[in-house]
Computed example of a mutant assay.
Amino acid sequence: MLALIRYSVPGSQAGEFVDGARTILATLAAQTGFLGGHIGRSVDEPDLWALVSEWEGAGYYRRALSAARMDMYPLMTLMINEPSAFEIIASSPE
């Protein structure tokens, strides 16, 4: 399962955002079912950021969100309100 949370971050808040996103990613990484994650920034729209993580399943992700809630709270005003959980249908060959 792939999780994608997008954020709209003014340039003046980018450093603070990265610090907060690293904290969130570390909390998520400590949760059962976490497979990997990244923090990324759009190359075309520098105010658009993403926190991407991969999970063994949706249940793991949803439980991890509960564990990370306090870390996520400071960045919630920057979060784009849209679905974040995606079922993986196909992957590249190994």
Rank of each mutant, 00 (worst) to 15 (best):
M1P: 02
L2T: 04
A3V: 08
Y7W: 15
S8F: 03
S12L: 03
S12F: 05
A14T: 13
G15V: 01
G15F: 00
V18Q: 07
G20K: 11
G20C: 12
A21G: 15
R22E: 12
I24T: 11
L28K: 05
L28Q: 09
A30S: 15
Q31H: 00
F34S: 08
F34C: 02
L35W: 04
G36M: 03
G40P: 13
V43S: 08
D44M: 03
E45G: 03
E45C: 05
P46N: 12
P46K: 04
D47C: 02
L48A: 14
L48V: 14
W49Y: 15
W49P: 10
S53P: 13
S53Y: 10
E54V: 14
E54S: 15
W55A: 06
G57R: 10
G57C: 05
Y60A: 15
R62I: 03
R63N: 15
R63Y: 06
A64H: 09
A64L: 09
S66K: 06
A68V: 08
A68W: 02
M70R: 10
D71I: 04
M72D: 07
P74V: 06
L75F: 14
T77R: 09
L78K: 07
L78N: 06
L78T: 05
M79F: 03
N81Y: 07
N81S: 08
E82V: 13
E82R: 15
E82D: 14
P83G: 09
A85Q: 03
A85R: 03
A85S: 04
A85G: 04
E87S: 13
I88K: 03
I88P: 01
I89N: 07
I89T: 09
A90D: 12
S91D: 12
E94S: 13
